[in-house]
Design a binder for these strands. Structure first.
Length: 805
RNA sequence: GCCGGUGUGGUGGAAUAGGUAGACACAAGGGACUUAAAAUCCCUCGGUGGCAACACUGUACCGGUUCGAGUCCGGUCACCGGCACCA
């Protein structure tokens, strides 16, 4: 009997499609399990070999959960808005919706080919108006609660694509796609106030089970820091606010620096005697991209403002004010007090511009370099009432003093910025807002959702940086929902991250046309029990969707504070030789080729066997053979096993051990060692001979990994019972802990910590027995000759260490 | 620069409450079967020495703790990922 994987896989995929054994049932009394993978972007290239890694892992987890009696929701969908489709449409003069449809159909076919146990009746497509109606609805709610606002922002502009880029689309200062120069451009943008949720996004990480590096990366990205806001009066008669984490060094503040964009620069214009020079610097800074500004970290630049000085509040000294682009307008107050003695950047600047350097923390040589201690080793000097204190002691004393003098207060700052939410692109969700000369920005009433994306003649971006939608005057010109007068629609669309920020909720109730999902479905399925995805989404999608979910929680739509209970992450699949797979390198592996040559079960098994799930691994076409060979060996067992339905005695121990190992490893995402254990068991079956009953257990354990082959063998061996249940509907096998232990064990015998031999002893032998067996062993006795036993270290069943003298 | 991770045979990788390093595979070499090839099966496979038994050595490098260290601690180097003038 030959293992004809092609026909077997076709047969069972058709059967699953027909009988739907993987359907999730809302409200079912069984315990629920919601396993989620990041839904793919349906690119024109089709499925990449990187996709099956996380997909197969979660499929295995979900298949096992079903066999363990859970009601499992394992859905799939498509994150289909986005620029590659739009660019393809422009180039080939096809509507992006048609391209999307084709791509989704190709992806669907490929995903089905791999035998994933998705509930195909719950497919979600972010470009479907019935879906993006609710994306728009959430935006309206955000607007209603004051969390969406429009403001003018400098953005990244690609000179060749004539298009705004997100920060993550700018790589080393050039456009990620075309390699052209990226410049800054001021544009009016819709923004979402994610910063309002900064603290909760940090705090609630304590309540979820995410792998540590995800939590750390999110915390770093949000970047909380505590310090003080301090008021400096100026000779212009106003108050300049700064933020510092080192208010203990206030006596050492010898000058101040404003970001070039700081509002006071313009405000002080009449007082500044060198305004031309200042203005020139401001203009120069504006012309630079963020990348160029960051690149210039070797040499500090700046201009001193003549005509206005600040007063250090602790000693009344007049100090100069500079503008320099090493101060960022977007962080803190956009202004700093400079303490050159104790800050590297201030020190560099001071050296170049000849500013005074005053040591206020003893312990370094501030003429040579800044003494920037972060710990508690320095002692305050030249600091009046702080003298003699350590830094740690001085900070609260100074904070208290500032508060008493009404000169400042404790303050928390975050690096996190509000989310730039508009894109000048066609292929995205229209933002449901209307601008009326009389009423300003007016939200569309809910009854007018979805606001459909109109058909345009050309999706080409414009030279002016307006969205292609702006040319659709019929669509743009509308009436104000508020006053009924003439008004214009917003022509920017939402970023790709919008649709993916809530898709997991739609899966719970995908066909609901009254709400984004029913309360019943949300209550039943929330939260996602296990979400696996890429590290590259940690600070984008994962953070954005947590933010939206918290907002939906606040307005009473969802029942949980956090969307995902558990988050894990997979490593990348690299090409042979450890290089990134790319078209230009020509090392891209297409899953179709592997499936054609070896079958989907081999593909699934191999992608799991290949290495540690969390780490990057290189793909090897050669190594796939080993996984295929293993499945062949399993297949051939059906021909050579005895007819007994009982578990054979000689295999009992390995069977129980393997059930334990495979069960535990799947839960810990250690698929590679689970498969190794199955291989070991099969090797033993060949060595010992095996019964049909033995093979039955093997098939159950293997079924999440190689579902097609297992179903076929299940049928061939006649395991299908009267109810006609498939292997995937059977109960997951249980093990007897007592039977996972052998009667006898091999123990290592060390002498003075050095391995000198091994002995066989009954399991659980006591020290006395072990020592006596060891000393009676010829090989070991040799080493013990003429010496006396001083000490014995006995680790039951593992090792005995004899110390001799 | 800061944060995080990793470093084990020719290759992918096993092994952590500190307890026989190299499980399971791939490749390679040898053999069986075959007219032949493929497939399959058996054997060898970290290094050095030895016919062998065996000995010594070995988990990036240096040092420490311990009866015992791939695993813990201190330091160094290399690579990968993230952030990057965040005051």
């Amino acid at each position: 009997m030959k293992y004809d994987f092609t026909n077997i896989e076709k047969k069972w995929q058709a059967k699953w499609e027909e009988t739907k054994p993987y359907a999730a049932v809302t409200g079912d009394p069984r315990k629920k399990f919601y396993g989620l993978i990041e839904f793919p972007y349906p690119s024109g290239q089709g499925l990449h070999v990187g996709h099956p890694r996380p997909f197969t892992a979660m499929d295995i987890i979900c298949r096992k959960k079903r066999m363990q009696g859970y009601n499992v929701l394992f859905p799939i969908g498509f994150d289909a808005f986005g620029l590659p489709t739009e660019n393809y449409a422009i180039k080939n003069h096809v509507h992006p919706a048609i391209v999307t449809k084709q791509n989704i159909s190709r992806f669907t076919q490929q995903l089905k080919m791999l035998g994933y146990s998705f509930d195909w009746d719950r497919v979600v497509d972010t470009t479907d108006p019935q879906y993006y109606k609710w994306t728009q609805w959430i935006f309206l709610k955000l607007y209603e609660k004051g969390l969406a606002y429009k403001t003018t922002m400098p953005v990244n502009w690609c000179t060749s694509c004539k298009c705004v880029l997100a920060n993550e689309e700018v790589v080393n200062g050039v456009c990620e796609r075309c390699g052209s120069e990226v410049v800054r451009k001021e544009k009016s943008q819709w923004m979402l106030k994610i910063t309002e949720y900064a603290q909760r996004l940090i705090d609630d990480l304590d309540d979820v089970d995410y792998i540590e590096r995800v939590k750390i990366q999110q915390r770093n990205w949000i970047g909380r820091s505590t310090g003080a806001e301090v008021n400096f009066t100026t000779t212009a008669g106003d108050v300049l606010k700064i933020f510092t984490t080192r208010c203990d060094t206030l006596f050492g503040a010898t000058y101040m620096v404003l970001a070039p964009e700081h509002e006071f620069v313009k405000k002080w214009k009449p007082l500044i005697t060198n305004y031309q020079e200042v203005e020139a610097y401001v203009e120069e800074a504006a012309r630079k991209s963020d990348f160029e500004r960051a690149e210039l970290n070797k040499e500090k630049t700046g201009v001193m403002i003549q005509g206005v000085r600040a007063i250090n509040p602790v000693n009344g000294k007049e100090i100069p004010i500079f503008i320099s682009d090493y101060v960022l307008v977007t962080y803190g107050t956009g202004a700093i007090m400079a303490v050159p003695a104790h800050d590297t950047r201030d020190w560099e600047f001071a050296k170049k511009f000849g500013c005074e350097i005053v040591e206020v923390v003893a312990g370094g040589d501030v003429e040579k370099e800044a003494f920037t201690l972060k710990d508690d080793t320095g002692i305050l000097v030249n600091s009046g009432f702080l003298n003699g204190l350590t830094v740690k002691q001085a900070i609260p004393v100074m904070e208290k003093w500032l508060e008493e003098q009404k000169l400042g207060k404790q303050k928390v700052n975050y690096k996190l910025r509000d989310w730039v939410f508009s894109r000048q692109r066609y292929w995205g969700e229209p933002i449901p807002m209307v601008y009326c000369e009389k009423c300003g920005w007016v939200p569309l009433p809910e009854s007018q959702l979805p606001l459909l994306l109109p058909n345009v003649e050309s999706y080409e971006p414009t030279d002016t940086g307006e969205s292609p939608l702006s040319k659709m005057t019929d669509w743009v010109n509308t009436t104000c929902p508020h006053c009924g007068g003439p008004a214009k629609r917003e022509t920017d669309t939402m970023p790709q991250w919008a649709g993916s920020s809530w898709y997991f909720l739609r899966y719970m109730d995908p066909h609901n046309d009254k709400e984004l999902a029913s309360k019943e479905a949300l209550d039943y399925w929330s939260p996602v029990d296990w979400y696996n995805g890429g590290m590259e989404h940690t600070t984008l999608h994962l953070l954005y969707s947590r933010f939206w979910h918290k907002f939906l929680y606040d307005i009473g739509v969802v029942p949980t504070k956090e969307p995902y209970q558990k988050r894990t992450s997979h490593g990348m699949i690299l090409g042979e030789g450890g290089e990134k797979m790319s078209k230009s390198r020509g090392n891209v592996v297409n899953p179709n080729d592997i499936v054609d040559q070896y079958g989907a079960d081999t593909m699934r098994l191999h992608i799991m066997f290949i290495g540690d799930f969390e780490k990057a691994v290189s793909w090897s076409n050669e190594a796939v053979k080993g996984s295929k060979r293993f499945l062949d060996r399993v297949w051939n067992l059906a021909d050579c096993c005895t007819n007994s339905e009982e578990i054979s005695e000689k295999n009992e121990s390995i069977i129980h051990k393997t059930i334990k190992k495979v069960s535990e490893d799947i839960d810990e995402l250690k698929m590679n060692t689970a498969i190794a254990a199955l291989m070991t068991m099969v090797n033993e079956f060949y060595a010992n001979g095996c019964s049909k009953g033995d093979v039955r257990i093997l098939l159950l354990l293997l079924s999440p990994f190689a579902p097609h082959m297992v179903e076929e063998l299940w049928e061939i061996l006649g395991f299908a019972d009267a109810t006609g249940k498939m292997a995937c509907q059977q109960e997951w096998p249980a093990y007897d802990p007592a039977k996972t232990v052998d009667a006898a064990v091999e123990m290592a015998v060390q002498i003075g910590g050095k391995l000198r031999g091994t002995i066989q002893v009954p399991v659980g032998s006591d020290q006395e027995t072990v020592v006596s067996v060891a000393l009676n062993n010829e090989k070991i006795a040799k080493f013990a000759e003429g010496k006396s036993l001083v000490k014995v270290i006995h680790v039951p069943n593992k090792v005995v260490n004899l110390i001799l003298k």
